[in-house]
């Protein structure tokens, strides 16, 4: 029973596979022959739901495109570049709204990212083990508070504080800059920036912490063994984690751009472009939240849906970039 047939070459063996009775048989055979009927149905059933998720995302884009068709046809690209948003005259230019969205998100990042990196460093490099869990828990708690509760707190605590303390202080000491001029309303860009900064803090810091942790311990030990101080070894870790932290920042940006309730409640809701942080502004999400139920004309509604479409596309781009950055970091470190 000794077997010493020469191995056929690999290309030929492929052909053989395709003729086998085991795989891949036709439909009839699959069900009644070499496959189990229940398994056949089960695979198709779960596939159906996966297809559903696939179609859902496509459908979302399609629905918004159809819903905003008349606005797209009428305004075209000028929708993005025109700075007049006037529902009475039926003119819809989203430039001040896009401006408000970008500026509020960007400034929120400016405040939030350094703090988040600090938190991430503290949690992954400095903090003693027993402190790490409760602190992480607190940061996660911050992420669990509903947006509307942030807004409520914004209206009754943050805005009055900005009106009576922050804005007078800023205009007195930094009033020579165009950013800190005008009447202290409280409601406006500054309030929106602060509340956004708080809201994106948990996501940016927790992802950054995970990323710092994914840097191999050997990197730190190598640095410390060379006589580096804690901070110097941390700098090396940060360098490794650069693209990952950038990815976390992008995810935070995606959050900030789409954040709706808290911003609507404190930003003042006026479609104007003003350099001063004291002035009211508007973001895409807050326009939709604020005006959707009031939109009586077809064109008005269509313009608002177009705004949602722009927001949809923008967040997809931001999140895809974030994903790519985190991936590239994981590949570089070989952690995945």
């Amino acid at each position: 029973m000794i077997n010493s047939e020469i191995q056929p070459d690999i290309e030929n063996s492929r052909v053989e596979i395709n003729n086998t009775a085991v795989r891949p048989p036709g439909f009839f055979k699959k069900v009644f022959g070499t496959y189990n009927l229940g398994d056949f149905i089960f695979e198709r059933l779960t596939l159906l739901f996966a297809v559903l998720v696939f179609l859902l995302v496509i459908l979302m884009g399609y629905e918004m495109y159809v819903g905003s068709k008349i606005s797209i046809d009428k305004f075209g690209w000028s929708f993005l570049t025109n700075s007049v948003w006037d529902p009475v005259q039926e003119i819809y230019g989203a430039l001040p709204i896009i401006y408000g969205t970008i500026v509020s998100s960007f400034l929120a990042l400016v405040i939030s990212v350094p703090l988040s990196i600090g938190i991430a460093i503290f949690l992954s490099e400095v903090s003693p083990g027993w402190l790490e869990k409760p602190l992480s828990f607190l940061v996660e708690l911050l992420a669990g508070i509903p947006s509307v509760v942030y807004g409520l707190w914004g209206i009754f605590v943050l805005v009055p504080w900005i009106r009576t303390d922050v804005e007078p202080f800023l205009s007195e000491h930094l009033g020579f800059l165009p950013f800190f001029r005008g009447a202290p309303y409280g409601f406006g860009m500054l309030a929106a920036v602060l509340i956004l900064a708080i809201m994106i803090l948990p996501i940016v810091s927790s992802i950054s912490r995970d990323i710092l942790r994914s840097v191999p311990q050997s990197q730190r030990e190598a640095a410390l063994a060379l006589g580096a101080t804690r901070w110097q070894s941390t700098k090396i870790v940060l360098k490794d984690a650069k693209s990952g932290i950038l990815g976390a920042t992008m995810l935070g940006l995606g959050r900030a751009v789409g954040e709706t309730m808290a911003v609507t409640m404190v930003i003042g809701n006026r479609a104007v472009i003003s350099p001063s942080l004291f002035d009211p502004s508007y973001t895409m999400a807050s326009v939709i939240a604020n005006e959707f139920t009031e939109a009586t004309s077809e064109m008005y509604l269509s313009a608002l849906i177009q705004l949602a479409l722009v927001l949809f596309v923008l967040t997809i781009i931001i999140n895809a970039m974030a994903k790519l950055l985190v991936w590239s970091m994981e590949r570089k470190l070989g952690t995945r």
Partner: peptide, 12 residues
């Protein structure tokens, strides 16, 4: 197996 070809039946 006892004369029946396994590759042509339900694996379960």
């Amino acid at each position: 197996v006892d004369g029946e070809d396994l590759t042509k039946t339900d694996p379960v």
